[in-house]
Amino acid sequence: MRTFRFSRFLIYSAACTLLIYILAPFIWLVIMSISSSADLTTKPLQWIPSALDISAYRELLTMGINSRGELFLNGLRNSLKTALMAVTISMLVTIPAAWVFSRFKGKKNIILSLAIFTFMLPPVAYALPLYRMLAKIGWLDKSYAVALVYCTIILPFCVWLIKENIDNIPYELEEAAFIDGAGIFKRITMVVLPLLLPALGTVALLATIMAWDEYFYAMLYTNSKQAITLPVVIANLASGRQSNYSLIAAGGVLASTPPVIIGLLFQRSLVKGMVMGGVKE
């Protein structure tokens, strides 16, 4: 009985430690974002803000000419636009490719291995020639160009996961449709696609988070408000000489909100998606 109680005590103290470890840094970011500059520049720190100060959020979310708000809101729009384009293109490209990889065993899978191999490559290894290519065709600082580049991050894992899912769809279903005279397009859209919808949803969410998170390519290939993405805007905000801590923190909180909400709402299917590709039962 005694050891039982002691183990209970251990579990609860470990759980509390974990709770603090997970929450403390982020809660502090939120507190910073609603603190006044005076509270954040005293020694020792004013842990609980003396007054609620939402001026940082107001500044970031107000559109004014050449203001930080303009840059931030443009970044937000560009991030959404880029992620949406990247995910849409990736989905359209993934479905037929994954179908081929699933239904034709053999040498076609070499291309799949190659695609997965690209995940190992550090982007710096080809970023420079790519930069010059984009410059040559006038695609620098364009959202669609960044979206296309993001497809190469999204595609390998999308194709892999969707292929695994198509493997589980009995081929007989397709054959039946084929006998009824359905062409290749109809077989994929009418038979395979409806059964894939849940998996496609999961993959699309994961892909959106990946695109939202990306910094390196966006830093290199965008520079003006027409294409610059949120991570770059926030990184620039933070690297500025004049440091307004609550403004930086507010930018961080706002940029985290969409992925955190997606994560909390869809945790189960997201984790399933992450594990699915690699683990075979």
């Binding site: 929450l23 985290s256 992925p259 994560g263």
Partner: peptide, 22 residues
Amino acid sequence: LRALLILPWAIPTVVNAIMWRL
């Protein structure tokens, strides 16, 4: 606790870096 476990993963890399820099 299980639900909150996804929080660090969901926070963008750039935000994580800036948060710790602060």
